[in-house]
Design a binder for these strands. Structure first.
Lengths: 253, 253
DNA sequence: TAGTGGTCTAGACCACTGA
DNA sequence: CAGTGGTCTAGACCACTAG
């Protein structure tokens, strides 16, 4: 009698470790402080390094830690709120936008993008690259796909290049009347190029924000922006820039 | 002469593996099809199982695969678009909402929640639990924190319990005039309770959507909803329920 | 150059599913 | 019960950073 069956599901070591570390971070470490190295930590907790790393990985995923090769593991500051555009129906690049045009090329977009734009799968479009910086850190990289039909043919776009050309396209785009925009957020992992721009390793988790700008019933442009998932909290809706900062998830029982 | 330095940064095995597998998924596998088991796959590619698993993990993170212990690894269907509420200023629970009230308790919320609600840190609030089902699958678990001041004291709330009590709170809430709502999305990992409700393992990646309902300048309620990051693409803005389905991220070079 | 995190191996055992 | 994915170990070497 009496095998009360409590802990019939013994918690995996790395989860317990994560809890312990998380509490230690709250009580014993300041933001920016550097933790002992992984080998020491593993030894201290009596686990293999791989197990310790499993715990650290999740804490980094939740934005509590920041690990840098050759440097060490530090306590991350709270995620920064990044606005996805308060008011609806606004073209990117207006006013005090933190986006910076990088360059602009013309090429045939991926099939999925062509379908969303309702352009032909062989049709070349303008591709504007932009990067977003917040609080001195790169937080997002964007590809903005603009069908040739959305901008004037007579402009100086094709005469220029680089950032100037990107600005020309954005300027032209602002003349199009915007009907609505459709947004989507999903989880992805950074490709090699995004990873470099975001100062992370390939495969790092990113929040992919897809925005379809609709004008007169047609897709006037499509933006695919990848945000660093570890450092960003995306805000939208009627919010101005209010900091909520609720804990990122509920705790285990 | 001539050390062209190409591949001076040799791609890690697991990334190459991920690319190869990803292409195989596109061309040789149908949705729902089950892959060879991990030991066979690892042997076939000549790598250790841990290395193979690193590739599978990322593919699962991107929603391309679904792994279930005791069953196997299957090709996942495209992520489903889940709307976060098309029109602004709407209380949850209206009309054809896919949310289902589970139960309702009264308790002191976490400090971060109390701060966002501007209630005292010792003040008890109504906590409504709801779960969201889409296409027959659980996609989200929510905790809705409702200060006592947002609902009537005289209602039948405290007389009922369980789902009935949850419905009573939601019904009462709908009488409050909504000024605006502030939303935030960030990456998190499922706690033990959420994991169970979402049919995933603890630590599974989730998209945490925090919504602050503002009425007359005060926070009338706070919702913290965790969505399965592997199967969901969150849509919002003026979109109705349009399926965009752009690839989740750009490819490595 | 010393120390860090990142990758990789070749095992082992466990928890879960379904026949 | 056999087979699957999940956890864990104790090593090794590599890529990167900073003094």
């Amino acid at each position: 009698m009496g095998t009360t069956q409590l802990e019939s599901v013994p918690e995996p070591k790395y989860l317990h470790l994560k809890t312990v570390l998380s509490e230690a971070l709250d009580s014993e470490f300041a933001v920016g402080e550097i933790l002992p190295n992984e080998r020491d930590l593993a030894a201290r907790f009596g686990v293999a390094r791989a197990t310790l790393r499993q715990a650290l990985e999740q804490l980094e995923l939740e934005g509590r830690l920041q690990r840098r090769r050759g440097v060490g593991t530090t306590v991350a500051p709270p995620r920064m709120g990044v606005s996805l555009g308060a008011g609806p129906h606004t073209w990117p690049g207006g006013s005090e936008d933190a986006w910076q045009p990088v360059d602009c090329t013309a090429a045939v977009p991926p099939a999925a993008v062509a379908d969303a734009l309702e352009t032909g799968r062989d049709e070349s479009v303008h591709i504007v690259r932009r990067s977003r910086v917040s609080q001195g850190r790169p937080v997002a990289a964007e590809l903005l796909y603009v069908p040739r039909s959305s901008v004037s043919e007579l402009s100086a776009i094709d005469a220029s290049s680089g950032a100037a050309r990107a600005r020309a396209v954005l300027r032209d785009l602002r003349r199009v009347e915007l009907e609505r925009q459709e947004n989507a957020v999903e989880l992805g992992s950074a490709g090699a190029d995004d990873a470099k721009e975001l100062d992370r390793l390939p495969g790092a988790p990113v929040l992919v924000v897809t925005t379809r700008f609709v004008s007169a019933g047609r897709a006037a442009a499509l933006s695919v922006a990848t945000y660093r998932a570890d450092t960003c909290r995306l805000t939208f809706g009627d919010s101005g820039g209010v900091e909520i900062h609720t804990g990122p998830q509920r705790q285990a029982s």
